[in-house]
């Protein structure tokens, strides 16, 4: 199985853990992820204004490059996935924007949304299959009660993202169960963590994180997993802030659990100890 792979800036720096564990797991699963040459930053947020095309262009370059290889484009960072998937949708459905973008970029071939953008989790579910993944689990996470946190970017807006049932998703829970863990259901799993508001309004985000963490704890979670560097930062750093440094619920990227279940690496013991 071979795919084009778009990493994004955060994965090369603050969220290197996410990328390293994902790539390691992919290799173990026989999935070839070819990092795109000369990828550019997706812009981190999808441009919601419809009167300018400049913010789309870097995404379109990556999408067009993937089309040239004929492979599906795999993303890992939730924000990059959101931006690329939506940009692709616009290219597919909005003739006007599509024409302008093509005119501007002067690509050798016109790009009209032909690439399929899939998230790493979708890759595991739809391309590899959770049942195939289950067979590769060497160290099942039996007995571990883990809460999945979806965040916004993978799920919404539902009509475009088509990731899962936006109000009642199950992909991450199915993933956790595949690894042998017990998935904890709690009502805040699809709420917003506060995203970039933590740049300026940390107190608002702290309040939102507190609700999420408390809800997960009340439902018996021993750890929480996410798929987005910014969710990860908010859940981890602002949890510590509200609890005055005491981490009540460890936070992991879903790929860290994958790595552990495949027997590639133990989660750092010291991390558990916090």
């Amino acid at each position: 199985m071979r795919f084009s792979y778009y990493p994004g800036c955060t994965l090369k720096t603050t969220a290197a853990v996410l990328e390293n564990s994902a790539l390691k797991a992919a290799r173990a699963l026989g999935i070839e992820l070819l990092e795109q040459e000369e990828w550019q930053c997706c812009g981190a947020v999808f441009p919601l204004t419809v009167d300018e095309i400049a913010p789309f262009l870097s995404s379109v370059r990556s999408l067009a490059a993937a089309k040239d290889t004929g492979e599906k484009l795999v993303t890992l960072c939730a924000a990059c996935h959101h931006v690329l998937k939506r940009a692709n949708h616009v290219m597919k459905t909005d003739k006007d924007v599509c024409n302008k973008a093509n005119n501007y970029l002067q690509l050798p071939d016109q790009y009209r949304g032909g690439t399929e953008v899939i998230h790493y989790l979708e890759l595991l579910r739809d391309e590899l299959g959770f049942s195939a993944l289950a067979q590769k689990v060497k160290k099942p996470l039996t007995g571990q009660k883990i809460a999945a946190f979806y965040g916004c970017l993978l799920l919404r807006p539902p009509a475009v993202m088509q990731f899962d049932n936006a109000e009642n998703p199950s992909i991450m829970e199915d993933f956790l169960r595949t690894l042998g863990a017990t998935a904890v259901d709690y009502p805040y799993r699809t709420e917003c963590c506060g995203v970039y508001l933590s740049v300026q309004n940390e107190e608002i985000v702290a309040g939102m994180v507190e609700k999420i963490i408390n809800s997960a704890l009340r439902h018996g979670a021993e750890a929480i997993v996410d798929a987005c560097p910014l969710c990860h930062y908010n859940l981890l750093e602002l949890q510590q802030k509200t609890t005055h440094g005491k981490l009540t619920l460890p936070v992991y990227y879903f790929t860290e659990l994958l790595e552990e279940a495949l027997g590639l690496e133990d989660r750092a013991e010291e991390k558990m100890a916090i």
């Binding site: 800036c9 812009g43 300026q200 560097p229 930062y233």
Partner: peptide, 23 residues
Amino acid sequence: GDMPRVLNKGMPEQGIVSGFRKY
């Protein structure tokens, strides 16, 4: 001028760029 403060917190690039783009 806000940048160093944010960077010091270990904020991921994704957050910084998002905030920058929105604000």
